[in-house]
Amino acid sequence: MSKVKITLGGINEDEGSSKEYKTGSWRTMKPEVDIEKCIQCFKCFDYCPDAAVHKTEDAIEFDLDYCKGCGICEKECPVDAIVMVKEEK
């Protein structure tokens, strides 16, 4: 559960605060990557509709604060380096 307090009328007076607003909560499946298999083609990065794939030095990582668990990255990965697993909360 979130710990950010609600405000009067949901009005947020902090600028640029949407970064603090995590929207990945309704996911039921989450992606996991096998870095050994990854060939760094970045198709997952291109196809993720939520910009929830970040490039790292040796492969990619998922930003689970925003990932919605849609599974597009898994479908697009040419070497099956991504698998969707059940989210346990």
């Binding site: 559960m1 979130s2 609600i6 009328g9 949901g10 009005i11 947020n12 007076e13 600028e15 605060s17 949407s18 607003y21 929207t23 909560s25 309704w26």
Partner: peptide
């Protein structure tokens, strides 16, 4: 600037 009518996910909507 301030945000009005922001997104209220299931974690926030009920309290609001």
């Amino acid at each position: 600037p301030a945000t009005f009518g922001s997104f209220g996910t299931p974690e926030y909507y009920q309290e609001l």
